[in-house]
Design a binder for these strands. Structure first.
Lengths: 229, 229
DNA sequence: ATCTCAACCGGACCGCGGTCCAGTTTTGTT
DNA sequence: AACAAAACTGGACCGCGGTCCGGTTGAGAT
């Protein structure tokens, strides 16, 4: 009765019981920090805990690459499907493993004491933020890397090396006193095809704006912009 | 020898008859541009051509994601093993597909006419280089993306978004007149865990240098460095 | 206590990337 | 022309990520 003449709106909408994958919800400043799982059934919550623990054990004992979905399932005495239902995919599982330190870090720069948290001038906060992230990266690096497929190969691709090297050379001419090798990586970041795809296709940003941002970045880095501003 | 130390430095080096995978050799300025394959046996060369052609056909007809190793092999009437022997892995195959335009691009900024090629001041060459790369990316984007596994997800990861957004906010305070959204991506590039791993673990660069480079980058971008230099 | 239904579970199943090796073809040598 | 070594070939095989679905179980309503 409820749905008399109502169905026309609903698309094909299979009776999928709504993706239950728990997103690592982006912080909720001020709310209780430990109310993680939305409203999980008892057994589901128990399995989730088991799975995370098992995954942690695996990465501790045999390295991050041993964290295979099947292995985790077996280690937790749980079906394979359960792992996927809970975490969506491998990346989701690894991300969940990182979630705790992630939240701590977010809390630190969002509400913690200066210079990381609010209260210091923005430039100083930026400097502190970068250093904090660098240190954090070196700690949980293995997981961080495993969570992103193909991450370890990215900076070894020959093509990329040539391009970066060219930027580095030009930088050496333009700003001889800088650490051009490292600086070139920052510039490369702005030209990453994946980024370009994301910005233009998914965010709808026109190419012209990307170009403008690039020239602006070059100006700032080479110090040419200082005169103009 | 060109690629010594590329693929994770062959460890125990089994009696494998030397990886015959043909690297997209990094440019050889001045040599013949069409002597691509090093010294391939006749049938091997023929199969290689067949494979590339088949792959091209597939990507043209059914998109880059249809370029499966098995599909390419079948389309070229060739065994699966042959594809892997020739190109190493999927990435290698896609890379080889991109190789032609890659070489053209390299030639353009290495030896072509200014402002891309030599002859113009470095700042101008940098600007031209970026714009050229941006345009190139938008063209062969699909392949470029497919060649790097997980590339399309990278910039959608929630954690990354939060971090980038924080940088963006700080930038807005520090340099209100800039395109902070785009600028933040460049800064993020310098903090990418994969990059940190590559620089510290594979290149042996100490963390302190990364930190120094980061603060220097912040100074340059916020214009604070101008006063200091 | 019982009923009902949505949520959950497990594991069979699929496709793909990647490896391996027995057999075949090419090339250089005598 | 005949031969041997080297290089190449193809397809069976493996492991893993991801999907699917029939059966089960927990939680609220009566």
């Amino acid at each position: 009765m409820l749905y008399a003449g109502f169905m026309s709106a609903a698309p094909p909408s299979v009776p999928t019981p709504q993706e239950p994958v728990d997103q690592p919800e982006l912080l909720q400043l001020g709310t209780a920090l430990e109310a993680d799982e939305p409203c999980l059934r008892a057994d589901a919550a128990r399995n989730r805990a088991r799975l995370l623990e098992a995954a942690g054990r695996l990465v501790a004992e045999r390295g991050a690459e041993a964290v295979t979905m099947e292995a985790v399932a077996a280690e937790a005495c749980v079906g394979k499907g359960t792992v996927f239902r809970r975490f969506g995919d491998r990346t989701g599982l690894l991300t969940a493993l990182l979630d705790h330190s992630e939240k701590k870090f977010q809390a630190a720069f969002l509400g913690g004491p200066p210079p990381l948290g609010p209260g210091a001038p923005p430039e100083e906060r930026l400097r502190a933020f970068g250093c904090a992230m660098l240190r954090r990266s070196t700690d949980e690096l293995e997981l961080q890397l495993a969570a992103e497929p193909g991450a370890s190969r990215r900076y070894v691709a020959p093509a990329r090396r040539v391009l970066r090297h060219h930027i580095e050379m030009l930088l050496r001419q333009a700003v001889p006193d800088a650490d051009c090798e490292l600086l070139s990586h920052a510039l490369m970041g702005q030209l990453d095809p994946a980024l370009v795809h994301h910005l233009t296709r998914q965010c709808g940003i026109p190419l012209s704006r990307l170009e403008a941002a690039w020239t602006d970045l070059v100006d700032r880095v080479t110090g040419e912009g200082a005169a103009r501003r």
